[in-house]
Nucleic acid binder design. Structure first.
Lengths: 152, 152
DNA sequence: ATCGGTGCAAACGGTTTGCATTGAG
DNA sequence: CTCAATGCAAACCGTTTGCACCGAT
C-alpha cells in the first residue's frame, strides 16, 4: 500500500514524506475504524511520532484526494476518515444505532440496483455514495423491551 | 402543520413560543431547500423578525428532535436542515454533482428493498436513512466533453 | 539550490454556553 | 408567580492559515 501511495504521490507531483506514510500507516493498522483527526494525532503520540495536528489535517485531505481515504460524517461535529480499499470494488454501508451509537457495516447487493436506477432517472454519472441507515440495534431493542416490562 | 407543532410541544412539555413557530414557518415556505442556520437567520432578518442566532440553533435542534426537520450534512463544514414531511411516507435521496454542487432529489423504489435487506442482515430496526450519491450531472458531463474536444 | 511540506501559533467560523431578562403556563 | 425560553456576548472547538524553517527532489 505504501508503494501505491508513493506512486500516486509521484504521479501527481506531490512529495513523498515520512509524515504522509506514517498517517496512512495509522489507518492501515486500524482497519475498519473511523478515525477523526484527533484520534489519528493521539495514536501518533502513543507511538512517539511527533507530527503536528496541522499536518494531520493536511495529509488526510490529501489522502482523500488521492483516493486512499474516505471522508465521513456521523453528525458529531467533526469529520472521520476510513480506509478506502481501492482494490475492493465492494462498497459498504453504515448502519448506526440511534441509542448506543454502535456502527455496523454491511454490503447489500441491492446498492448496485439503486445506483443504476438513479443514473437512469437523473442522468448523473454516479461515482460514489455515502449511505447511512439509522435505527435501533438488536441489543438496544432487547433493553427497550425489558424497560417496558419493568415500567408496567 | 403549526397545529401539529403545538400539539407535539404540549405533549412533550415544551412551551409554545412565537420563535419556534416562526422558524418552522421559514422551512414551510422554503419547501425543498436545505437551509443552514445562517440562512434561516438571514431569512428572518429579511422579514424583520428579530430572533437571536442562539435561538435558531436551539430551535432547529428541537424541531429535529420532534421530527419536523432532518439534519443534513453535505461536507461543507456546517449542518443544513430540511422539512421532514411527516405524513409523506416517501423518502428521498440526494444526488450531488461533484463539479457544480447541484443537488437533485429522487425517490427510488429500490430503497425499500435495501432497507428490508439490511434489517434482515443486521437485526436493526431501521428508522430512517440518509443516502447521498455523488457524481457528475448531465450538464457538467456535457461541458467535460466539450473541453476534451477543445484540448485536442 | 529550489520550492513544496511541516510546525507553530494565531485566526477562523460554526456552534454552544452562562447568565440576566422575558414571557408562557 | 415560576421556571422554561430567549438574547447577548463570551467561550468553545474543530479546522484553516500565515509564515519561518526544514527537507525532498
Amino acid at each position: 500500500m505504501y508503494e501505491e501511495l508513493r506512486n500516486e504521490l509521484k504521479k501527481r507531483k506531490y512529495r513523498i514524506t515520512a509524515q504522509r506514510e506514517m498517517i496512512l500507516k495509522i489507518f492501515l493498522e486500524s482497519r475498519g475504524r473511523h478515525l477523526g483527526v484527533e484520534e489519528v494525532y493521539r495514536e501518533l503520540l502513543n507511538r512517539n511520532v511527533r507530527i503536528s495536528k496541522a499536518t494531520v489535517y493536511r495529509s488526510v485531505e490529501l489522502l482523500v484526494e488521492l483516493g486512499f481515504l474516505r471522508k465521513l460524517n456521523f453528525g458529531e461535529g467533526l469529520y472521520r476518515y476510513e480506509l478506502a480499499e481501492r482494490s475492493e470494488r465492494e462498497s459498504h454501508q453504515h448502519v448506526i444505532c440511534q441509542k448506543c451509537g454502535r456502527i455496523v457495516e454491511i454490503n447489500s447487493e441491492q446498492v448496485n440496483k439503486i445506483i443504476s436506477d438513479i443514473s437512469k432517472k437523473t442522468g448523473y454519472a454516479i461515482k460514489w455514495h455515502d449511505l447511512k441507515f439509522y435505527g435501533i440495534c438488536p441489543e438496544c431493542r432487547e433493553k427497550e423491551k425489558e424497560e417496558e416490562k419493568r415500567s408496567k
